[in-house]
């Protein structure tokens, strides 16, 4: 059995760990608040943008004039933008995303489609570094501060690949933020763009376009990709902090439980020691009497 001093040391260690996890929990909570605010500020923009595109694309009869709207006849190579966090210690958050990515790649391979990865996030990069997967590019440090410029850079490179025919379809895999306790890895097809269809009631309006319908749509479509990429970055960022907060809360609770059991063992051991000493003293006194 462990000696008293060993147990005491362990209790102290557990206590210190719980202090750390508690602090990390609070840091994650405050970061979560910031990230959530950013996401909410961005949300109206994304929403309006989607409406715009929907309305513009609804009037298009022949999509073949727009490369970004036209599905390729044969899909042989697809590109996947995988968004994960840069840091760990957030429970199964990153693992869930990586498993989903693996599943996606396997499913595509079974169909005879080649997958090229673009990693956004250190965890994704590290994970696929030593695996037999084509990685075209990796970005890190995106989620510290989600910036419009990043969306444009990443989105731009994806569009380039699609237009040049190096990718027949482009997907994005990110963590969809449902609520604080629930995040869902989800795959969305970015290219070719499938605009959300409008309710038929909207069609009665005749819009005036300036400069022209075609020019506007051509101009808007790439921006739409940037917005999509940005939105998934925002959501993953919020999800990461939420997941870390939950994980650290769990860790703190586990520390408390562990501390309680250890304290119990400690007290029992201490009592056993005292009893033993008393027995010795009593035994000694009895022996002297005789």
């Amino acid at each position: 059995m462990a000696t008293l001093r060993d147990i005491k040391r362990k209790i102290d260690a557990v206590k210190k760990t719980s202090q750390i996890t508690k602090a990390m929990n609070m840091v994650a909570a405050s970061k979560l608040r910031g990230a959530q605010q950013n996401m909410e500020k961005f949300h109206p923009y994304a929403l309006k943008f989607r409406e715009f595109i929907g309305r513009l694309a609804a009037g298009v009869e022949d999509t073949s004039a727009y490369t970004l709207l036209t599905p390729k006849e044969e899909v042989k190579r697809v590109e996947l933008l995988l968004v994960t966090a840069d840091r760990g210690l957030c429970g199964s958050f990153n693992t869930n995303l990586l498993v989903a990515a693996e599943r996606f790649i396997r499913a595509k391979k079974a169909e005879g489609v080649e997958v090229t990865l673009v990693n956004a996030g250190r965890k994704a990069r590290d994970y696929f570094k030593r695996r037999p997967v084509n990685v075209r590019d990796s970005y890190t440090g995106l989620l510290n501060k989600v910036a419009y410029e990043d969306g444009r850079r990443i989105g731009g490179s994806l569009i380039e690949r699609f237009e040049s025919g190096e990718a027949d379809e482009v997907y994005i895999l990110y963590s969809h933020f449902i609520n604080i306790v629930k995040q869902q890895p989800s795959v969305v097809r970015l290219l070719p763009i499938a605009p959300e269809s409008q309710e038929s009631g909207q069609k009665g309006f005749e819009y005036l376009f300036e400069p022209s319908h075609e020019a506007l749509l051509t101009d808007l479509l790439p921006n739409y990709i940037y917005v999509q990429v940005l939105e998934s970055l925002y959501q993953t960022c919020v999800g990461e902090q939420a997941a870390r907060m939950a994980a650290m809360e769990n860790a703190t609770n586990n520390c408390k439980d562990l501390g309680r059991t250890l304290t119990l063992t400690y007290n029992k051991a201490r009592q056993a020691g005292i009893t033993k000493e008393l027995m010795d003293i009593v035994g000694g006194a009895e022996a002297l009497k005789k």
Partner: peptide
């Protein structure tokens, strides 16, 4: 400031999309 020149909008304007 529209791409093709400034434009004004008053109530009752027809639907309009512009860069």
């Amino acid at each position: 400031p529209g791409e093709m020149g400034e434009f004004g909008v008053l109530p009752g304007h027809i639907p309009f999309l512009c860069k």
